[in-house]
Design a binder for these strands. Sequence first.
DNA 1: GGTTTACATAGATAATTATCTATACTGTTC
DNA 2: GAACAGTATAGATAATTATCTATGTAAACC
Lengths: 322, 322
Amino acid sequence: MNIRHLTFRLLQVYVTVVRCGSVSAAARQLHLTQPTVSQQLKRLSEAVGSPLLEQHAQGLTLTATGQALYQASRDVLGRFDDFADQLSDLQHGRKGRFSIVLVNTAQYVLPRLLGPFSQAFPDVDVTVHIGNRRQVLARFDRHEDDLYVFSHPPALAHAVAARFMRNPLVAIAAGDHPLAQQPAISLEQLLTERLLLREPGSATRMLLDSWLQEQGVSMQKTLQMASNEAIRVGVAARMGVAVLSEHVLPKEHPELAVLPVEGLPIESHWQFIVRSDQRLPQSAQRFLHYVHEHLGHWIEPRFVCNELDSLLAAYPAFPLRS
Amino acid sequence: MNIRHLTFRLLQVYVTVVRCGSVSAAARQLHLTQPTVSQQLKRLSEAVGSPLLEQHAQGLTLTATGQALYQASRDVLGRFDDFADQLSDLQHGRKGRFSIVLVNTAQYVLPRLLGPFSQAFPDVDVTVHIGNRRQVLARFDRHEDDLYVFSHPPALAHAVAARFMRNPLVAIAAGDHPLAQQPAISLEQLLTERLLLREPGSATRMLLDSWLQEQGVSMQKTLQMASNEAIRVGVAARMGVAVLSEHVLPKEHPELAVLPVEGLPIESHWQFIVRSDQRLPQSAQRFLHYVHEHLGHWIEPRFVCNELDSLLAAYPAFPLRS
DNA sequence: GGTTTACATAGATAATTATCTATACTGTTC
DNA sequence: GAACAGTATAGATAATTATCTATGTAAACC
């Protein structure tokens, strides 16, 4: 048997002929002429190397080979129908996988988007990595993920970005800290306190550094901790004050106070970054669309900054509704 | 997905590429050039409607679609490998079915050939029909079977015949019948006895009729019975004498005697008939070859008359050994 | 015995496929 | 940054396929 020139189409025609029990009937059903079907059968028979059909008084009869081929054809076509179903799910992003990397601060927020998405699309597997800004950039360079979330625009080649949420940095102190009582605080006043800092390489630190530099001042007493959580707890324990993403604070935080420092909060934004030189899986596209549509439902309005349109415009063929 | 222009070859190439993890390696293995394989992949990808592969630092990676296609391809190709195995059995006649029709007398002999054949080829299903000459001819006219066994050459269109066994007709009487004692018996003497006859339409009757006509004599006392068995028992019970195929007699037959009538035995032969206007199933071809080779092992030499060569010459491509 | 029905064959043509060579692009690796 | 390895693209060509119309053939039906 020569498998090389065997097409699925040929098997479809064959199955139709067997089901119809007649060449002419099959031709009508397939919108072909009868000689065309006859010839296809001939080719198929040659490919297989044995006769498949015999003509008897009561119509066509299958040879043993013909029966075996009929079963094989049905199995094979059925298997490809299944594949087509899978494909449809995959192509609509209802199924699949993608990976996303977050800078540390974003980990307080993204679960509020990923959670509903996973419920809506249970067959999409999402892998989430978390690191500080430097680590996320390294992963970007190595093409390790599909979606990246930064809190400050990086200048990267092959990157397309779109902001979606505000990420204000505020100054905090213990709830009963003397500064917490004041109606307004100058930057200099703040810097007399010990400042609890994230490590260099983190976005929060970078933003703070560059903001202070703009203001022409420099830090005095500092203490460095590589975790937003640790800093928050440290501030509550009166180790000092800090400038942190507002999202790091719990909803209710009696033991912490946001300080009305002049010039604060520092405005920054989280944004999705995709690599333009790498295919974005359908499921990740589906996620971006989902975020675009539902952001307002899951996030407090004052944080929403939905600028995803420009990014999504790159995937125009994507079916908007599942 | 457009299934129409999907070939098995394309899937083979794809599977090879995935297994090799590289287009070039697959090309070498398939004895093709690298651009050829690249282009096949492109076509496949277009047929499916989604990217299948991605190029990363560590070689090619499958997309989710690519993985699904890989599995589907393996399943499908595996299914066709199974089919090819079946096909091989069918094409070598190791498996399949055929039907054969025997005239009555042959039913005493053909089981001795069909039995060993069925043991040697357990996956071949044989259907045996039995009738008298007229009934067998009617089946032949209606194309009802694959193989026909007659005991007298019919003049048929689209028939090819080959003799394989002698079928002598002998006169018998009860073991203690007066004629049984005589060293030689004339035809006239025989005809004074009551003759137990098969029905018109049977070959035995036809042969006897025409032989008697040649001899210029006619029957006097007769009794007609539509079964060789009934006649044999009737002769033993002294109802009369008969002319029957020698094969109808049991190996040991003390209650019956073969009479040395002049001019007897009437020589006739069994022969296989195949229709030249109808495909002979491989399994039936295999059976004829089997008979040709083993006839001498299963049948007493004096009955063997192996003239199947001419018939088998029509199937030259048939592999002689299983 | 003519008519119908169903299948096969022949011949033609446009589209598609299989395959090549030559060349361009893109990361790795010295 | 030059060389290299692996892919992709372009252009060419022979083979194959898909499909038609027209015609032949054989059995079945009045």
